[in-house]
Design a protein around this nucleic acid. Structure first.
Lengths: 140, 140
DNA sequence: CTGTATCCTTAGGGATACTG
DNA sequence: CAGTATCCCTAAGGATACAG
């Protein structure tokens, strides 16, 4: 695909994450607080290892995630969201609401969808706080 | 690609519009109020005719748009958003904000981005109203 | 004008094996 | 465990021509 097709902000976003896999990885980083290659590989959708490695590189290149060694285990790398990545939370929330609304078989917990609709800003804050707090879970 | 990879609402959404073109068409339907094949074809990104026709069919199949003859010109068809399509406005707005924030060369009018951030609900209402009112423009 | 159809090339992706 | 590499196939996409 051509890049820099236009300077529309929607197009800018699509050129970065307009595919079937990238946002699933970001979903796992945000909602399931996954940080390692192995954890990300175990998504329910079954991402292939080459695709996962490729997308992690692209996300690092575009400044959405960082990669560093786990201080406790030098063989493990930690992938973590930058501010640019954290700022995708609102996009993800709106997509969740839309998806949960129109997928009859959705697996999204209705309580979460209700809370997003009811107080979106509070939900964003809560998720950001959970990302910084290893104890807190967003989705069990 | 496999479909129904999971019942995650994010995945549900991605299986419908997780590509480089679909949301650009929806952008034009929402923000630029385009309704015809010809108007949609003239996007700044230069969509190919086969891709446009394919996506319009898929969007109709998934119930995001409807297609009907223009009562004034039987040779022209009008593509219009359903409620399911209109409900993508929040997703599009969040993507716009993110894209405009991180694309230094963004073409998004800063006034609009500010208004989205300031009062998102009001902006959604305004866009919905504009869609019903042929006179009103959202982006000039 | 609204699409289809075709041709061709590239990119995306699944499976699997393999390396440090 | 964290990737790379390979193979192979399909899907996506660009260009262009053409039909109703």
């Amino acid at each position: 695909m051509k890049t820099n097709r236009s300077h529309c902000p929607i197009n800018f976003a699509l050129e970065i994450f307009g595919d079937k896999w990238t946002l699933l990885i970001i979903r796992d980083l945000i909602f399931f607080k996954k940080k390692t290659y192995g954890a990300l590989k175990n998504s329910p959708e079954g991402i292939a290892t080459n695709i996962l490695a490729n997308r992690l590189n692209l996300l690092e290149d575009t400044g959405i995630i960082t990669k560093r060694q786990d201080p406790k285990n030098t063989k493990v790398y930690l992938y973590e969201l930058t501010q640019k990545g954290i700022d995708l939370i609102p996009v993800m929330l709106e997509m969740s609401v839309w998806g949960a609304t129109y997928d009859a078989k959705t697996a999204a917990p209705p309580t979460i969808i209700k809370r997003i609709k009811k107080d979106r800003e509070a939900m964003i804050k809560e998720i950001k706080a959970a990302l910084k707090n290893p104890q807190k879970k967003i989705i069990k």
